[in-house]
Design a protein around this nucleic acid. Structure first.
Lengths: 239, 239
DNA sequence: CGTTTTATTGAGAGACTTCAAAAACCGTGG
DNA sequence: CCACGGTTTTTGAAGTCTCTCAATAAAACG
């Protein structure tokens, strides 16, 4: 059940059988949610964290006008609201963009597990730092990259992240977001996001159809995006 | 020496004398840096973390063009690169905007301290989550707020944060950033940032001069910014 | 197949940028 | 105390990226 999550961890460091058992014992139940639903709402008191087994979720924040900003996208294997473990309520909503399977991890179990496995505590702390690093890269994108470069960057990021869990085939991966949702990631209007998609197509950089992207020219796309994956900290290491 | 940091922590939760001693024992030395210097560069291997005793620093990321984005501002008492403790190198630069005094905390000491004081471990993990929460609010600002509202938001955020450490007098606090640096926070050009400053002045919302801001009309400034301080998680609680 | 959602197109408007230069401010040295 | 060079703030005008509004086409869904 946690195979993708474990694979993700094992890309970064070694996980012993003992540790693996401890992680597997965290899950109290599995919850299914439909697409376009709020999984967790800002402010809600949290007594458990969620680990995404399957599907796409995102962190979203809204303005009074209804304008929405997506601050991070999550894919299978991501421990989506580890933040809630420390914060006890979130400053943002967690929304499902596709039908999702989520593992429920009671904070109590997480606490006991971290006491027994301080090394895992560090790894999970580390993972929350990765979220912050992703946020910073998105800040750079929103503040300084052009719309086109920013969109290119998004496709690059998701590509490496999917690649990490072995879900890129021939440069292509599942991409179920609508252009409206892409626009909400990039701080653009739907109309302009659409024009940027077309421009990336016109330049022969990507194909986007049937809820799938294919990157046709990695080097040029990455150059356009000024993409440097080091902010994802994929280098293997000890904890 | 760590009085501001301890005051910050004690706003959020109780810190025992024992814990206070453990925190104070972290510091191996104090380092002084001049204004406009890089304190830590992206990629540098880190064996210590820095705690800002006095001054202003910021996290910055640059594009090849030289365009710079500031992703977070730090004030006295902030544990500025706790992230580096887990990440071992940063994805961004840490720059001093004023002359700064920084406490050096070797990772070794931090590790031993966290083993002995698991409660402090949680508090510091929590603090890195706060950084992420601030990043998310800035993402919302960059993506969805107008330049004017965004700038108003920045002044609101710094006001509450300074207030937490008792450094707001009569609605006014130290604000040593140049308009260029403000522009780098907001993803704007200096020219436009200047026009927004003037607009805030014209509306009677702020005074900005001599490296100090004074907020003249909190309610209207916060309304303009749609400022809701909950993302800073200032509510007191147990760990 | 009709209904709803998503993608696409066009035209005009506006927020923010660019370039360029002037004015004000600041620290230093005479 | 004033002169001076450098930085920061301010102003103007023209340009552009992105938005708004509005409508059509295409795809998804029951």
């Amino acid at each position: 059940m946690l195979s993708v999550h474990l694979r993700m961890l094992r890309q970064r460091t070694s996980i012993s059988v003992d540790e693996q058992r401890a992680i597997e014992a965290l899950v109290s139940e599995v919850r299914n949610v439909r697409a376009d639903q709020a999984v967790i709402r800002a402010g809600e008191t949290l007594t458990f964290s969620l680990l995404l087994l399957d599907g796409w979720t995102a962190r979203t924040k809204d303005l009074a006008s209804g304008d929405r900003q997506i601050s991070e996208l999550h894919i299978s294997g991501d421990f989506v609201d580890l933040h809630g473990f420390m914060l006890k309520h979130l400053d943002h909503d967690l929304r499902a963009f596709t039908p999702c399977r989520l593992a429920v991890v009671p904070h109590e179990r997480l606490e006991r597990m971290l006491e027994k496995h301080p090394r895992l505590a560090r790894i999970y702390w580390f993972l929350t730092n990765i979220d912050a690093a992703i946020h910073r890269e998105w800040l750079l994108s929103l503040g300084q990259r052009s719309a086109l470069s920013h969109m290119a960057h998004l496709f690059c990021e998701m590509c490496v992240r999917f690649d990490q869990i072995g879900m890129v085939e021939d440069g292509a991966y599942a991409f179920p977001l609508t252009q409206r949702e892409v626009a909400e990631c990039l701080g653009l209007t739907t109309v302009h996001a659409n024009r940027m998609v077309q421009e990336l197509r016109r330049r022969g950089l990507i194909e986007l159809a049937n809820r799938r992207v294919k990157i046709l020219d990695h080097p040029r796309l990455e150059a356009l995006a000024e993409f440097d994956p080091r902010y994802l900290y994929f280098d293997r290491r000890e904890f």
